[in-house]
């Protein structure tokens, strides 16, 4: 990045915002070190508690605004899970809700200027995706035994095609966690980096108005992306869960 610093005093450090730093100085990052990851994940938990626990404290029949948000979130994920996996999928509602809440709140908190986006890190999204992948795979085998392998054997296809389809199905099954995680981290990271690049251009007075307009527009887009990516991650989790509960096409 230092090479780009040369011309006209423009300084582009679009990736600096993603650096993991220890909170209390030092440069060593052990697995237990409190870092900005800790801080912003903690704030995510705080926000979730504020909206879903404190917000619903009134238990009002006619909800307050905060309680409405909590109920809408609950209702949306609950309906999504029920629509896709059916009644038997509702057992896993707390897990799906945990994923959705973490991603959506982390995404929105990451939109606060100068904040740190935990969901922009592939390490985080990969763990989320692997949790879903492993959970769904284990659940599929526990629930259906060897019958779960029927997921890869497309019985509605003509017999000669089935082995070919099985190979494709197996590959697509194992690609799932990769696309699942990179989609989220990539979207969040790209948006934040682009905003930073536009912000770098604002150092030139002539371009500054355009730059600020562009930042505003990107920010609006990022707000959409924050919600949509959380939604997409959750809906894919539901779809994978459906495959585990009802294998076979």
């Amino acid at each position: 990045m230092a090479t780009e610093e040369a011309a006209g005093g423009l300084a582009f450090h679009p990736m600096d915002q993603f650096l993991v730093r220890p909170l209390f100085g030092g440069t060593e990052i052990n697995w237990y070190t409190p870092t900005n990851v800790t801080l912003w994940m903690g704030l995510t938990v705080l926000a979730i508690v504020l909206v879903l626990v404190v917000g619903s404290r009134g238990r009002a029949i006619v909800p307050s605004r905060m309680q409405s948000i909590a109920e809408l979130t609950f209702g949306m994920v609950h309906k999504m899970l029920e629509d896709i996996t059916g009644k038997e999928g509702l057992k896993y509602f707390p897990y799906v809700m945990t994923l959705f809440c973490f991603i959506v709140f982390a995404n929105f908190i990451g939109l606060i200027p100068t904040s740190f986006s935990t969901t922009s890190h592939i390490a985080v999204t990969a763990v989320l995706a692997m949790l879903v992948f492993l959970g769904v795979t284990i659940l599929g085998f526990v629930k259906n035994g060897a019958h779960f392998l029927g997921l890869f054997w497309v019985s509605s296809a003509p017999l000669p095609l089935r082995p070919v389809l099985a190979v494709i199905e197996v590959i697509s099954y194992f690609v799932r966690p990769v696309s699942h995680s990179i989609r989220l981290a990539g979207n969040v990271m790209a948006g934040h980096a682009v905003i930073k690049v536009f912000a770098g251009f604002a150092a030139i007075a002539a371009i500054a108005p355009v730059s600020i307009l562009a930042i505003t527009a990107m920010y609006g887009l990022e707000v959409l992306v924050a919600l949509i990516q959380a939604y997409v991650f959750t809906i894919l989790t539901c779809v994978y869960l459906k495959d585990a509960l009802h294998p076979g096409h």
Binding site: V20, N30, T33, V37, V45, F102, V127
Partner: peptide, 14 residues
Amino acid sequence: ETFPNQIFWLLVTL
């Protein structure tokens, strides 16, 4: 180098 840290705190958060 930052992966163990992130993964640990993510699991705690979750």
